[in-house]
Amino acid sequence: MEIFEVISVGIIASVLFLLLKDKQPSIAFLIIVLTVLYFFVFVIQYVQEILHLITYLGEEANINEIYIKTILQIIGISYITEIGANIVKDAGLESVAVKIEMIGKVFILILAIPIFKSLIETIINIFPIT
C-alpha cells in the first residue's frame, strides 16, 4: 500500500518543517515545496494509467483522436495549475494563487475552443438555419 508511504513522508516533512520553522523559515518552506513536488511526481504514475484507459476507450469508441488529446491537455493544465497554486498558497500568497488559477482557466478555455466550435457546427448541421 503506497498510501502509507505518502503519509509517513508527509509526517516526516512536517516534523522537519517544525524543526526549521523558527530559525530558517525560507529553508523550511523549501522543504514543504519539495515534499509537495514528491507527492505529485509520485501520483503522476497512477494518473498516467488512468489516462491510458481513457485513450483506450476513446479508440474503441472511434472518437476522433484530437478530442481525446484536447481533453487530456485540459486535464494536464488543471493538474499543473493546481500544483503551482498550492505551492504559492503554502507560501502564504493567496492572491497570487488565485491569479494562477484564473490564468489556468483562461488557457483551458482557449484549448476548448476547437471542440466547442465543432459542437456548434454539429448543432447547425442538425438544425440548418435557413
Binding site: 513522508v9 516526516i12 516533512a13 526549521l20 509520485f42
Partner: peptide
C-alpha cells in the same frame, strides 16, 4: 516514492 533522503539532507543543511 523515490528517495526521501533528500528531505533529511535538506533538513540537515538547514
Amino acid at each position: 516514492i523515490g528517495d526521501t533522503s533528500v528531505l533529511f539532507q535538506i533538513a540537515g543543511i538547514g
